[in-house]
Design a protein around this nucleic acid. Sequence first.
DNA 1: CGCTAACCGAGACGGTACGTCTTGTCTTGAG
DNA 2: CTCAAGACAAGACGTACCGTCTCGGTTAGCG
Lengths: 184, 184, 184, 184
Amino acid sequence: MNEPIIRPPGRPRSEASRDAILDAAYWQTIERGYHAVTTESIAKAAGAGKQTLYRWWPGKAAIVLDALAQKARERIDRPMEAAIRAGDLHAYLRGAIAALTTIGPALRCLMGEAQADPDILSSLRGHFVEPRCNALRLLLEQRVTSPTHRETLVEAIDGAIWRRLLLGDRLDNAFAAVLVESLK
Amino acid sequence: MNEPIIRPPGRPRSEASRDAILDAAYWQTIERGYHAVTTESIAKAAGAGKQTLYRWWPGKAAIVLDALAQKARERIDRPMEAAIRAGDLHAYLRGAIAALTTIGPALRCLMGEAQADPDILSSLRGHFVEPRCNALRLLLEQRVTSPTHRETLVEAIDGAIWRRLLLGDRLDNAFAAVLVESLK
Amino acid sequence: MNEPIIRPPGRPRSEASRDAILDAAYWQTIERGYHAVTTESIAKAAGAGKQTLYRWWPGKAAIVLDALAQKARERIDRPMEAAIRAGDLHAYLRGAIAALTTIGPALRCLMGEAQADPDILSSLRGHFVEPRCNALRLLLEQRVTSPTHRETLVEAIDGAIWRRLLLGDRLDNAFAAVLVESLK
Amino acid sequence: MNEPIIRPPGRPRSEASRDAILDAAYWQTIERGYHAVTTESIAKAAGAGKQTLYRWWPGKAAIVLDALAQKARERIDRPMEAAIRAGDLHAYLRGAIAALTTIGPALRCLMGEAQADPDILSSLRGHFVEPRCNALRLLLEQRVTSPTHRETLVEAIDGAIWRRLLLGDRLDNAFAAVLVESLK
DNA sequence: CGCTAACCGAGACGGTACGTCTTGTCTTGAG
DNA sequence: CTCAAGACAAGACGTACCGTCTCGGTTAGCG
């Protein structure tokens, strides 16, 4: 029952560095846009060496994706759990849509990177597609009885959101309302 | 009454070069992926000088987008007109979905470029979003009477297609069938 | 009257580590060349931590120089003492020249490092220049009576040897014979 | 009788860039020392792109060597021709020795680089060893009749100069005088 | 015996330079 | 004025090595 956590030899990884890198990556992406962010600028802002980035991530895309995913976990998924437990689809959609306004542009670019890198794609799915689909599936459970129909609805709602995001169309409460309305 | 077509002075633009560039851009994008294509590789393959590319297009993204759009017009929009005139939604969706398998990956990347360049975004909309939406709007005219509901449906169907494309999910006849089924 | 060797507190320096480091530095330098040797590769081969290198030497150049100097003492200076005592200039030159074939390339590199680091330069002088000059001075004592002329001869002979070494020219017995011949 | 100089197609190499690069490389090497010079700092100072350096030279060592060789041709070999034609060994040595004070430290480093790169070594020979040896050979022609003895003397004088250079010893007129004196 | 001090291996860290790659512009002669 | 060819400035990329720092663990003398 005791903890068998044995530390490997050598200097342990610096969590401070990890956090500083992800933080710098997040804010630079939000403020300057994905293309203007550089591995070097991240390293500089984080007070880290460039090699430290490449030791733990395969490249810029992975770092930014990780940074966005962490913030999404903290700020989006956590607060959204209440809406999911309450079964309030409208509230959930409002929240989910609002959350996308900041990270949307970066997600578009990561979609592009994902074409050439399957790891990026699967990470993108795991962090930014499946969580919302799972939530929608849960929230539609009572309203839609047929599983296949429900799945199609999930895809349609999730797809409509992604589409607006990628095309730069308005993502506001009105859009959330329209989506809910169309289900009646 | 004679033809008022006066030629500007100097050597006229070479249509052969234009076609060779678009052709090279198209095939390299399909075969190697957007990121592996470079302005230099396009110029080389087209037997063109790099300056000729930049004389007529603002950059790589615009060239590839133009190349994809041209092929799409030739191979997709043209054959699809029959389905639209016949009002056959199912046939239209089958065709539209099939057409995306080749150019899909490149469109993802262009989505990324579009974040930093509004011209790319509007070109992307004009060539690859609005045509399909217009077709869907027409095809849903009889089935769905409410204009707002119809618009939401268009967004949902178009969004579901984009979503599968961007996530690399299967885009096949079964998916077209599911979409049609869900409208009943 | 007892030994005043007072040990400092703490764990004493490991002679085994010191020897392993110098040995690894020597052989890697001989076999791969100075530039291909890394502080990390030395540490690895010696089964030592990198900090142990930097605790006792100021950097890579100093380690390699130390390693070469130690081997030179063991294999060159010691056996050469016989020739010096016997006053046999020809035998001494043959031995001195033969000894350079292995460590020559590394000495060239250390010459480069010495530009930026005076400590390296003075160490280089002390280990690889002055011993030979002292020996030559001794061996020329009877042949050349004028001290200034003798000094110039020492510089000329030592310089000719260094020159061939640095230029990668042949350093063989014929060269030793030519040098002796020119003194008659 | 007409000039058959046909230009290859494309933009010709910019002599301005070439000169600016060599100039920047020369002065930075003299003022900061070889190790402190960077391909990037050369490019920056020359107003050139880094790729332009690597298009025409294989690396930093080759650039610096070329820069030093060019200056040596301009400032050393040219003015020295008078002394050679006049057969004035003493004047030649004074000039040759004076010229080394500036570029000496850099040559030491290039000697080090030459270990790993035969091209650098042969370039070093061609620009900085053979010219002086040829001059010495010429100047000793009358004084020393035996060809083998003359060759040994050339090596000894050249070697003594190199030796002082590499060891950072004084290279002044007194040294030139001593060398001449020892030949009598 | 425990305590303190300096050592040891391992390996992550910040930093710097390298050489490659791509973009978009500029400069030739030819058409 | 356009075209092919290709050199140019700019600057991001990912790699390699350097010398430092941080762990857990070891080995001595001293109390």
